[in-house]
Design a protein around this nucleic acid. Structure first.
Lengths: 188, 188
DNA sequence: TCTGTTTTTTAACCCGGGTTAATGCCGGTG
DNA sequence: CACCGGCATTAACCCGGGTTAAAAAACAGA
């Protein structure tokens, strides 16, 4: 983590600080935005919008986390695969991917810091993949209760449902099932 | 890709070649194996085994791909989160994570190659995550038909089902639904 | 406080996938 | 050749989640 913070320092020195209001959009699905963002303060939501108009939440982004459309770095002509919007007033540091690579080429330590950060991202995605593959929607919700209960305070239940890959109606049912009002099982 | 191949060369010079028969296990869930593997030839399956004995396929690993339990790199005391087994006779290159880091510290170019490789891994995981989040099981199967039809030849339908996150029975139903024998809809 | 909007809950109905079990189908082995 | 184990298919039944719609609850602004 010390290494990652050092990288954050590098980004701080090379990046541009930006302030957004709640509800503001940083970039939209389809646009090209060749930047990596570091969240100094606030809370954001990254989401996919399908052709049929349905929204699915890719991830929530809290303080001290990074976000950017990685495909745009590798294939600069492609568009972002998702939209990034603020759920709270936020302060971000913005840095071009190409500038990041330049910074990281300067010192082996910062290169290693970036490598470790990327491996952390991979580990995180691996856990989400594991949860989709191996757990039921109810079990995935219980993981949130156990591991990131703050999320319940910062995101609406609608958005949490769309993050779990289910509808808000289904999440409401899961919750009432879990509250376990066992008497309801006895009633007609 | 040229960069990634250069990295593969580095791994080749520092790695140890290993040969496995079909059915052999490289490492088991719970063991600690601090290595990254590069597949020169063959085809492997990485899978999770739940407490209740159910198997879920995390990924298939074809030639020129890498695999390793990334959490073991960051947290060396933890065990692998999955089991790795050969579906075909395979030749692998094995390299300690720590040696890889040493190699990569030598030259900025190899560090950049690793960074690019990691970003490719992230992009790949992002697509799988997207498919779980936004697509139905049938749509996910259609993605395989479109993007990696070779998989149908190298893996059993059982394993493909467990990769899609459904049961073999469900995949069989999806296939018969898709064959679209429309007459069956007319019959009792 | 009143009001309009968003979020959450509940109900009814449908459908896809899980489960179990039976059957058929190879492919390998003795 | 006969046998056996794993793989694929099919059927029957159940349950969780999608969909639609309506109502209740929580919020934010005037």
């Amino acid at each position: 983590m010390g290494q990652t913070m050092a990288l954050a320092d590098d980004i701080q020195s090379g990046g541009k600080a930006l302030v957004y209001d709640k509800g503001e959009t940083i970039f939209r699905q389809g646009e090209t935005d060749p930047h990596l963002y570091f969240v100094q303060k606030g809370f954001l939501k990254a989401y996919y919008l399908t052709a049929s108009g349905k929204e699915y939440v890719k991830t929530f982004v809290p303080e001290n986390d990074f976000i950017g459309s990685s495909n745009v770095y590798r294939y600069p002509q492609t568009g972002c695969t998702f939209t990034l919007v603020c759920l709270e007033p936020s302060r971000l540091l913005r840095l071009k991917y190409t500038d990041l690579i330049n910074i990281v080429q300067q010192t082996p330590e910062s290169a290693l810091a970036l490598i470790n950060m990327l491996i952390d991202v991979i580990a995180k995605k691996e856990r989400r993949e594991f949860e989709f593959l191996c757990l039921s929607a109810e079990e995935r919700y219980q993981q949130i209760l156990k591991n990131t209960p703050e999320l319940l305070k910062r995101a609406t239940q609608n958005d949490i449902a769309r993050y779990l890959g289910i509808t808000p109606v289904a999440l409401s049912r899961i919750r009432s099932r879990m509250t376990g009002n066992p008497s309801s099982a006895l009633m007609t």
